[in-house]
Design a protein around this nucleic acid. Structure first.
Lengths: 274, 274
DNA sequence: CGCGATCGTCTGAAATATTGGATACTGGTC
DNA sequence: GACCAGTATCCAATATTTCAGACGATCGCG
């Protein structure tokens, strides 16, 4: 067999720096299907097959074939209005099944909503994944503010109060390495990027039992976060409230801190923390 | 008659939906990956690769390959404790994205929870899909009862009060045909299976604005349901409360009916019904 | 300790999906 | 009515995945 080597004749279009998750091996079509999901997830809105082809750089015919398979199975569906496809209902069902299986989410989604209702602000539940903070749940407050993170988005841990709590379990060496890898300057340029300073701050937040942040990732907004601790004592998540600056005066802030800590303690209790 | 202008060049065989999800064509690996999801969804609990191989009847090597691809991408993940795999977090993220896009679910999940909190009973939101009733959302009540349907499960419309409302839009002919195809005897053997009787009952329920059922699918339990109507006047979903028989005495039942109707009216309003 | 059972990886031949381009079909514009 | 741009399907050659079974690694158990 002329095993023509692996000369990956990549269509030369060396566009983007090639996403890191460009693993290879295994079924190609499956990876592509997954990429389609992620593309739509990021978009946050329906896209036409043409758009998908453009974004993912895959052949038209293949894309149509894939789309058909996924659509028939309910994993994609034609957007209600307008043209284009979006994620399908089946994915919702699967997501709910996942939630039902995972304590953190099953109990967390309820507590996050309670906190949202109690404060009127946007509340998030985040975890650490791959050195970054991942927003798992978000409930919009009544007065919604533009916040940087959508559900599913990943941001460096130094961009948010919650992120700093999530890594507060690590020992100095590990933490330092993680920070060195992942720290980025925030949109507003106000977050701490110096690793040793960050470590100090993180230690303080942990001891304190909550963390706060103002204007670091978002002009005129800040957040208050508290750690969720599981049965083994590890910080597995953080609950945070995002609020506009003018509602973060001392009085309101103290109130928010109290409520956030209360909520995260409640969730920690449900996870078996003592 | 639509001018037949050009004879259908290619008899576009958009054949019947074929209840069986045994479609073929398109990427095999993708279909298999999807089957794995559905298998885990049905199981409701983690499974080993071996179990999956057995259930889906696919070659071992292929299964491992697929599992690896899916696991690396976060669509499957090793179950916390014990061995086995389960649905992964990514699916949760996608599910939430879907929810965020669909009014029915975005608003519905909130309203369902409110109703659960108000009544303490298990509340469901269901839709019609492929002749069957599909439970999209479920919130367990404080005193949980064994109910036949999990989220994602499909049951014949004659098994539940909600199901009967979901088909109440259809005209007699269509409704009759649907019933003839899909009606099954319920677990307790108590639900109506006679098509013309069912149609009568359905018409009555629709006029009444709510439906009830007792012991038909579940000994010692019953449910109360009300229709969710969208902007165009169609019944797109139904909210139902499941309760143990002893809490369905006239008084309690009337109270539940009132609350369910209230909740579904509220959701209908959010969807643009007038 | 050795046994059987399950888990997980690996291999090259066989089966299958993928690909680019041709080809219709749609809908809107001049 | 002709035309363009975008959408969607079809085709045969080819590259890729799939498959069966062999193999090593683990695990549980008497």
């Amino acid at each position: 067999m002329t095993q023509a080597g692996k000369a990956r004749t990549r269509a030369t279009v060396q566009l983007a720096p090639a996403a890191a998750d460009d693993e290879q091996g295994g079924s190609r079509s499956v990876r592509r299907a997954l990429e389609m999901f992620e593309f739509l997830l990021q978009q946050g809105e329906p896209a036409t097959v043409g758009a998908i082809v453009g974004a993912l750089q895959i052949p038209k015919s293949t894309a149509y074939e894939l789309v058909r398979t996924l659509t028939e199975a309910g994993y994609l569906e034609p957007s209600g209005r307008g043209a284009g496809l979006f994620l399908g209902r089946k994915l919702f069902e699967l997501g709910m099944a996942y939630r039902g299986q995972v304590d953190l989410l099953r109990d967390g989604s309820q507590i996050v909503e309670e906190l949202r209702d109690a404060t009127g602000e946007t509340v998030q539940l985040s975890v650490l994944e791959n050195d970054m903070m991942l927003v798992l749940l978000k409930e919009e407050g009544s007065r919604s503010i533009r916040i940087i993170s959508r559900v599913g988005s990943r941001v460096p841990v130094n961009w948010a109060a919650a992120g700093r709590l999530l890594v507060s379990d690590l020992d100095d060496a590990t933490l330092g390495a993680l920070l060195k890898r992942s720290v980025r300057q925030s949109p507003t340029g106000r977050s701490i990027t110096d690793v040793s300073k960050l470590i100090q701050q993180i230690r303080r937040f942990r001891k304190q039992g909550y963390a706060t942040e103002l204007n670091e990732t978002n002009e005129h907004a800040g957040c208050v976060a508290a750690p969720v601790i599981d049965g083994s004592g590890r910080c597995v998540a953080a609950i945070s409230v995002v609020a506009p600056e003018h509602r973060l005066g001392k009085q309101n802030r103290d109130e928010l801190i109290r409520r956030v800590r209360e909520a995260s303690a409640k969730l920690s209790g449900r996870l078996g923390a003592h």
